[in-house]
């Protein structure tokens, strides 16, 4: 503080400018790559324009694009699938399993038996597999004719004909969620592990002196300490899952029928299959708006309480 005060005004002004200078590269890059295109996105949503038109060409149609999105009988189904299966199921599973695995890997016996390194590497393995590859590996495993799972089921006589997991109403969502969670779980585990490392051993010792068992100390020490990191990770993976496109698109393309359509696949097909960029942009804006509200509520409730 004395340092800033001594050289007087110009230094103080320089110091006041410092955070802006530090932020400049980030802000400039994000503005150019996202903010400007995002404004263009708004323009698109108000025009009738195909992917073949030059930049800035198109007829103004007002809110017609939004109306047609909301009138589309597919929209409620996509929205429900997006919220229930992507934004809720995959997120809840990842938070629960991630927490469980992080706690499990933290157990002292793994270190004593010198298997921690191996176990940790295996748990993090799917993270190193690109999503396209993860999808391919699972499609192969679950292939309706030659996949290992069906071969086993057929040989044991459990089923008469192979189950086409990605075209069967009962199995398709659990299968998609399985691929999604398998690939995206490690990141959650590693974040929670970092959080766990930050909890001091004294807290646990104090608790065990007070006679708390493992479950109690998890409830009263681990969870409250992890709360901020759970909150941040929860927000990021919910947004990511809500906008996610690749898992549904590569496994089922929205099928069977329209059973696994989500908003992101509906956006893509509207924009690039139906050649209706404006309609796609309208879906994108509705999605962003929804997430914006969600994030604001989330930040105001969950994050704030954890923060201060």
């Amino acid at each position: 503080m004395t340092l800033a005060a001594a050289p007087g005004r110009s230094a103080r002004r320089r110091r006041a400018a410092t955070p802006y200078v530090l932020l400049a590269p980030t802000v400039v890059m994000l503005t150019i790559l996202f903010a400007v295109p995002a404004v263009y996105n708004v323009w698109l949503a108000l025009h009738k324009v195909t992917p073949y038109d030059a930049l800035g060409e198109g007829d103004y149609v007002g809110v017609a694009n939004f109306e047609s999105v909301l009138a589309n009988p597919l929209t409620p189904l996509s929205a429900r699938n997006t919220v229930v299966w992507l934004a809720f199921a995959t997120v809840a599973l990842r938070l629960v399993l991630g927490l469980g695995l992080a706690v499990l890997l933290q157990h002292s016996v793994l270190r004593r038996m010198r298997v921690l390194g191996v176990a940790r590497t295996i748990v993090l393995l799917p993270w190193m597999v690109p999503p396209t590859v993860a999808v391919a590996a699972w499609k192969w495993l679950l292939d309706g004719r030659t996949g290992l799972v069906n071969k086993i089921l057929l040989q044991t006589g459990a089923i008469p004909e192979g189950i086409p997991f990605f075209a069967d109403l009962t199995w398709v969502w659990p299968s998609i969620v399985a691929v999604f969670v398998w690939r995206e779980l490690p990141f959650v585990v590693i974040s929670f592990m970092a959080g766990l490392q930050a909890i001091s051993a004294e807290q646990y010792e104090a608790a065990s002196i007070d006679g708390a068992d493992g479950w109690r100390s998890f409830w009263h020490i681990t969870l409250p300490n992890l709360r901020p990191i759970i909150a941040v990770i929860g927000l990021f993976i919910t947004i990511g899952a809500f906008n996610n496109f690749i898992y549904v698109w590569l496994t089922t393309g929205g099928g069977p029928g329209t059973f696994t359509q989500v908003l992101a696949t509906q956006l893509f097909t509207t924009a690039f299959v139906d050649n209706h960029l404006g309609g796609g942009a309208a879906i994108g804006l509705l999605m962003s708006g929804f997430m914006l509200v969600f994030a604001a509520v989330y930040l105001l409730t969950v994050l704030r309480r954890g923060d201060d």
């Binding site: 069967d168 069977p256 029928g257 329209t258 059973f259 097909t269 299959v273």
Partner: peptide, 20 residues
């Protein structure tokens, strides 16, 4: 656009095969 016709019909037929 032909791709739209393709999209709509493949999904509509697939919905019947799967029992949706």
């Amino acid at each position: 656009p032909v791709p739209t016709l393709q999209k709509l019909s493949c999904a509509a037929f697939g919905a019947v095969y799967s029992g949706q």
